Simulated assay, not measured.
Amino acid sequence: MALKATIYKADLNIANMDVHQYGDYQLTMALHPSETIERLMVRVLAYARYASEALEFTKDLFETDEPALWEKDLTGQLVKWIEVGSPDEDKVKKASARCPHVAVITYGSSVAEWYKRSSKLKTLKNVEVWQLSEATTEAIQALCERTMSLQLNVMDGEWTLIGDHAQAVIEWTQLQ
């Protein structure tokens, strides 16, 4: 019998004073048995970076042609394609031809090697790549609960994610 996904819910309140974005988002995410808490929480941060009412989680672990998150306009056309992790550069290149805005949120100890090997990414004008520090991904795991209330504060480029029992300073590095 196959293991089933575990459902996580997050009430995410964003106060981004840098770009004057404020909002409350109710997120429902499925944690696949092969997925880590670290990746789940990175998906939450990816959502927070590009938050909008139309942004949604996909079945990326089941459907290999889908990103972790995407946003479609009212006609069903892709507007944003957001990958989490270290995706295959051909998948990102294909996404960049289909979608005007593509982002990769990468993390882990092998990011530098992955980015160095991904030479095609550097030629794509509509792709941005963000790296989360290892300290960040360690800290955000402490915020994870089956039902979470998270407050994200952004001011002067400093991101702080606050949960019920802990908080994490989010360190982003833009690689592209």
Rank of each mutant, 00 (worst) to 15 (best):
S149I: 04
L12D: 03
K120T: 14
L55K: 11
S86K: 13
A54N: 13
Q167N: 12
L61D: 08
W114E: 07
M148F: 09
G85E: 08
M148W: 11
S110L: 07
I140P: 12
I7L: 14
P100Y: 08
K94Q: 14
D73P: 09
S96R: 13
A139V: 11
Q167Y: 09
A2D: 10
Y47D: 02
S96H: 11
R39M: 11
A51D: 03
D60A: 07
D164K: 12
E71W: 02
L132W: 13
A168W: 14
L150W: 02
M41A: 06
A51P: 01
A54P: 01
A103N: 00
D60G: 07
Q21R: 14
H165R: 10
D18V: 07
D18W: 01
K122Q: 08
L12Q: 04
G163F: 02
K59S: 10
S96Q: 10
S110P: 00
S110A: 10
S118R: 08
R117T: 06
L69G: 05
T64V: 07
Q26H: 13
Y8P: 02
Q176R: 14
R98S: 15
V79S: 05
R43F: 03
M1S: 13
I170G: 12
Y107N: 02
V44W: 07
I82V: 13
R146P: 00
A68Q: 06
W172I: 12
Q26R: 14
E83P: 01
N16R: 02
S34C: 09
E113L: 06
K125S: 13
S86G: 06
Q26V: 08
A166N: 11
A46V: 01
C99K: 01
R39H: 11
Q26L: 11
Y22H: 11
D88F: 04
I82W: 01
A112H: 02
N16D: 15
I37N: 05
R117E: 10
S119V: 12
L143A: 03
S119D: 13
V104K: 04
L40H: 05
V79F: 00
A135E: 15
E56T: 09
G76A: 02
Q174G: 02
L27T: 11
M1P: 05
K93R: 07
Q131H: 13
F62G: 04
A142E: 11
